[in-house]
């Protein structure tokens, strides 16, 4: 690969628009990861589309020199579904935050996932409403004190990975904004998956929820609290791999490897047809203060939606021939006057 120059450079994927996120926002590193990944994917800018809803994250399309649409709140997966059906030839990315995707657009997200439409969904999760200036979001913890919840939020939060797995998603992954290499790897995997893929990105909102993920993403906390899922490997973490994950009584559980032995550890298999183990892993952590898995939870093959739609068109064409308008108008019987 090294002797072939890529078709594009990261700079080719930037627009002339000034990026207007708050200085220090986690979105910047996600944008950089995306622009750096694009040349590696060997795709063309004109065949790439970014679709978003509303929110800070939703400004993303304006900063990518591709086709793009900044849509309406929550509806990006639905807009992208229509585009993916009309144009199965395109590479479509859907960008949204936790409010956009899990709250107002929750319905569209789960349906896009179950249909397995060929779109790559990036969920920027900062556990807060940013653009509306700091209300609790559907991923905020219970008791979160915000302007709209001065005595603490009453809502039990969604776990986006559990929701995605429950919605029959075929590709489910998680990464965080402090690790560009990992982000790029997850985005690459999502892109390679034919069908709907969702990548949750732990993203810092340094204005309204600063440090929300630090308990697991800060450099000194990563060894102890980030569990990197590797296909075919026993799930273990810690500076010296001293911790691991086992399945115990129907749930995933963190153990000391010294106590149980390596053989007892759960070997990660993202390709398992049954999502139950992936779901267990998604439930391992209750929040960003204890060991939390990142990486690919699930990557299974399922027939892609637009492909199925196209085959039905082809089948109808084969069976009934090319549609003829004059015959259609006569299909319910005619008479002469």
């Amino acid at each position: 690969m090294t002797d072939i120059s890529p078709r594009t450079e990261p700079g080719d994927w930037a627009t002339d628009q000034e990026v207007r996120w708050c200085p220090g926002c986690g979105d910047y590193s996600i944008l950089t990861a995306m622009r750096m990944l694009m040349p590696e994917l060997e795709v063309d800018r004109e065949n790439t589309v970014f679709i978003s809803g509303i929110g800070c994250a939703a400004r993303f399309p304006y900063y990518m020199n591709t086709y793009g649409m900044h849509g309406i709140h929550g509806r990006a997966p639905a807009i992208a579904t229509g585009l993916a059906m009309a144009r199965p030839d395109l590479d479509i990315w859907v960008i949204g935050g936790d409010g956009d995707m899990m709250s107002i657009g929750g319905n569209h997200l789960i349906h896009a996932l179950r249909r397995n439409v060929n779109i790559n969904i990036l969920l920027f999760n900062n556990m807060i409403y940013g653009l509306t200036k700091g209300q609790f979001s559907p991923t905020s913890e219970v008791g979160k004190v915000t302007k709209s919840s001065p005595m603490g939020s009453l809502d039990a939060p969604f776990n986006p990975m559990s929701v995605a797995l429950g919605a029959e998603a075929a590709f489910v992954a998680r990464t965080h904004d402090m690790d560009r290499h990992h982000m790029m790897e997850m985005f690459r995997r999502a892109h390679a998956h034919k069908g709907a893929s969702i990548v949750e990105v732990f993203q810092n909102c340094n204005v309204f929820n600063d440090g929300a993920w630090e308990g697991i993403t800060k450099k000194q906390n990563r060894d102890g609290n980030l569990i990197s899922l590797e296909q075919g490997q026993p799930i273990r973490f810690g500076a010296d791999g001293e911790f691991g994950v086992v399945v115990d009584n129907g749930a995933a559980k963190v153990v000391s490897v010294a106590d149980v032995g390596v053989e007892a550890l759960l070997v990660h298999d993202e390709r398992k047809a049954d999502p139950s183990t992936a779901f267990m892993l998604s439930r391992l952590s209750r929040g960003p203060f204890e060991p939390t898995p990142i990486g690919v939870f699930r990557a299974v093959e399922r027939i892609e939606y637009a492909t199925s739609s196209t085959s039905q068109l082809a089948m109808a064409h084969d069976n009934q021939g090319s549609g003829d308008l004059a015959s259609l108008l006569r299909s319910r019987g005619t008479w002469q006057v």
Binding site: M69, G71, A78, I79, T81, G82, A86, R87, H108
Partner: peptide, 19 residues
């Protein structure tokens, strides 16, 4: 496309029109 709701029905049509 039989959408999940009326909103998605319209939104998908906007997406298809863009395409």
């Amino acid at each position: 496309f039989q959408a999940e709701d009326e909103i998605a029905a319209a939104a998908s049509a906007v997406g298809a029109a863009f395409g």
